[in-house]
Amino acid sequence: MRKIISLISIIFMFTFLPLVNAEKPKGESPATPVKQSFTVPNSVLNIAKDNTYPNATLDLPRLEPSDLTSELIDSSKVKIENPDLIRMLNETSVNSTPFAIGYRAIIYLGQWPLNYESIETAPNWEYQKVNTNYFDNRGGKAPYQIHYVQEAQKIVRGGLTAKISDTEDVQKMMLMKASQKTDLPLAFETIIGGGTKKDQVYNVQPKMLGYLYGFAPAINEKGKVTFGEVYLMLKGGKKMILIKNITTQGIGAWIPIQDHVSFSFVASELPR
């Protein structure tokens, strides 16, 4: 609703003036967060080609601001990274005229999460157990080989660790930052299909029970979100963004690593 009202206000106020083209993308992209070097353990395997459930590849393209949007973003004293806000500004046409001397208007665009600053990004390779393969070789005379077979379809979900307004916008910014820093396929939901298999074998020795556990890994992302009330100010021939009532809130999230399983093999003389 806030977006519709804002756009209607702008269109209504400036339909009688020549349009400024706001579609041409700016060539320079915002700075990319520094990537962190994660050593993926040998026990963590990529199952993308083996997964019986085809997860959709989550592509979060960086939205390029138009010339007008870049001008407005540069005029703000607070960093603006929210892709939905940038998209709304890209779709906005503001008119200018040489006869606008003395003209002034302030248009309220709503309260927005403006940017997310990542403070810590850490992996948990055993975020959620998704499968157990088992074999009892206590009566056997030779080692028995078992391998991973997903017994049932498993949905692994992440999410924010606390309640926050504009959850979807915040999740999107956190996901983008975490993906850029880790260079891993991240998604707030991933599915492991029943019957998914891997060829790696694990030996269960005689007189032993073998347990092969499968875990879905995830990234724990922590940082802070900056919120503010966004105003579009038109003064004469100038256009600028004003941010008022700025607040900052700490937030964390668990983001599963898509199409990856972490394995742990345990041999025991007694049932576990």
Rank of each mutant, 00 (worst) to 15 (best):
K198A: 09
G194C: 12
L212N: 01
K222R: 14
G236M: 13
K239G: 03
A218P: 03
V225Y: 03
E221F: 08
A216P: 08
D199N: 15
L234A: 04
Y211K: 09
F215Y: 15
E221Y: 06
L212V: 09
Y202C: 04
A218F: 07
K224G: 10
T226N: 05
G214D: 03
G195V: 15
V225N: 01
G223T: 11
E229D: 15
G228F: 13
Y231C: 02
V230F: 03
N203T: 12
G195T: 14
G193P: 07
P217F: 08
G210I: 06
E229K: 10
A216H: 05
T196D: 04
Q205I: 12
Y202S: 02
K198H: 14
G194T: 13
G194P: 02
Q200S: 07
L212C: 05
K239W: 06
P206L: 07
E229A: 13
V204N: 01
A218M: 09
M208Y: 13
V230K: 00
E221T: 05
K239N: 06
P217I: 08
N203D: 15
M240R: 09
M208D: 06
V204S: 02
G236F: 10
G193V: 14
I192D: 00
M208L: 13
D199G: 12
T226Q: 08
K197A: 07
K224D: 14
V230Q: 00
K197L: 07
V204F: 09
T196G: 02
Y211W: 12
Y211T: 10
G214H: 06
G237F: 04
Q205D: 12
G223M: 09
K198T: 15
G223I: 09
G237V: 07
K222Q: 14
L212G: 01
G194L: 10
F215D: 00
I241G: 01
N220P: 03
G236A: 11
G236W: 11
P206G: 07
G236R: 06
K239S: 08
T226C: 12
K235F: 08
